[in-house]
Amino acid sequence: MGVAIRRAGEGDREALTRLLDEGFYHDPVSTWIFPDPERRRRHHGTMMGAFLDAALADGYVDMTEDGSGVALWFSMPGPDAAGAADAAVDGGAQGGHGEDAGRAAARALREAVDPDNERVEQISLILDANHPADRPHEYLMLIAVSPDQRGRGVGAALINSTLERCDREGRYAYLEASSVRSSRLYERLGFHLDSRTVDLPDGPRMLPMWREPRPRTAG
């Protein structure tokens, strides 16, 4: 039986925030950001909600019809488009730089989630600084599946719904695996480890992964 998938909207926010909170609560990156369990209990869900809001506003969110799985995606431009956008910003009367915008966004995330926790800001800056800009791609920021549905192909179905479009349009896909175990799951979907890693200060190692578009077969 296939997994029914649809595009999420604002009306799904509360349920999907809970799903993301549950799915990432014990993730190595989440425990690095919130090493204190009590602080994590109070602020982790707020951070997941902020990530979800960003995807709803500037990307897109796929979910299963039964609400058991969710994937947050962003369509990232190539170097030509990014350069044109930066030039347009710099040409304004109060022009700024993409780096300044990234720092402002990271500060805003920290203020919204946990103002006294510098790691909320750090994770945004680190991922932004290490995010590749050499080719257009679809970026899988987060994916979560409810515990009772894991191992049933829900996550693969969510990812494949976008990967099929990547193959049709000749687009790359990119993500950062937060553990070797999760990277092996992504390898089954055609992702390959990058030559570099993203090492969080005194924390876990994240593993960037790429997937090249697959040629469509005739017939």
Rank of each mutant, 00 (worst) to 15 (best):
E22M: 10
D21Q: 12
D12F: 04
L16E: 03
V29Q: 15
A8H: 01
T31H: 06
P28T: 04
Y25K: 11
E10P: 08
R18A: 14
A8D: 03
D21L: 11
R40H: 03
H26R: 13
E14K: 08
F34S: 01
H26M: 15
L20R: 03
R18S: 14
R18P: 05
T17D: 01
T31Q: 12
L20Y: 02
R40F: 04
E38T: 09
D27V: 10
D21G: 12
Y25R: 13
L19M: 04
E38H: 08
R13F: 12
F24N: 06
L19S: 09
R7K: 09
E38F: 07
A15P: 05
D27F: 10
G23V: 09
W32I: 02
H26A: 14
E14T: 12
T31G: 07
E14H: 04
E38A: 14
L16W: 01
P35W: 09
R7F: 00
G9E: 10
G23C: 11
Y25I: 10
P35I: 06
Y25G: 09
D21T: 12
Y25H: 14
E14F: 02
E14S: 09
R18G: 11
A8E: 00
F24K: 08
P28H: 01
D21I: 03
T31P: 05
T31V: 13
E14G: 10
R40A: 03
R13A: 09
P35L: 07
W32G: 01
H26I: 14
R39N: 13
F34L: 02
I33D: 00
G23I: 02
E10G: 12
P37C: 01
E14R: 11
T31Y: 03
S30Y: 12
E10F: 05
G9M: 08
R39C: 11
G11V: 06
P37L: 07
F34P: 00
R7S: 08
R40S: 09
Y25P: 04
R13C: 04
R39T: 14
E10N: 10
E38M: 09
W32L: 07
R40E: 00
R18F: 08
G23D: 03
H26W: 14
P35R: 13
I33N: 00
T31W: 00
G23K: 07
A8Q: 05
P35Q: 07
E10Q: 12
P28E: 05
R39Y: 05
D12I: 10
G23E: 10
A8M: 04
P35H: 04
L16P: 07
Y25E: 14
P37F: 11
F24Q: 04
T17R: 13
E14A: 14
T31E: 12
P35G: 00
Y25F: 15
D21N: 12
V29P: 08
G9F: 03
T31C: 12
L16M: 10
I33E: 01
R7C: 08
A15S: 15
T17I: 09
D27N: 15
G11S: 04
A8N: 02
F24G: 08
T31R: 14
D27H: 11
H26E: 14
L16A: 06
R39S: 15
A15T: 11
G23R: 03
G9K: 11
E38L: 13
E10M: 10
L20T: 08
D36M: 03
R18V: 15
E10Y: 01
F24R: 07
D12N: 02
L16F: 03
F34G: 02
T17H: 07
W32V: 00
W32N: 04
R18Y: 07
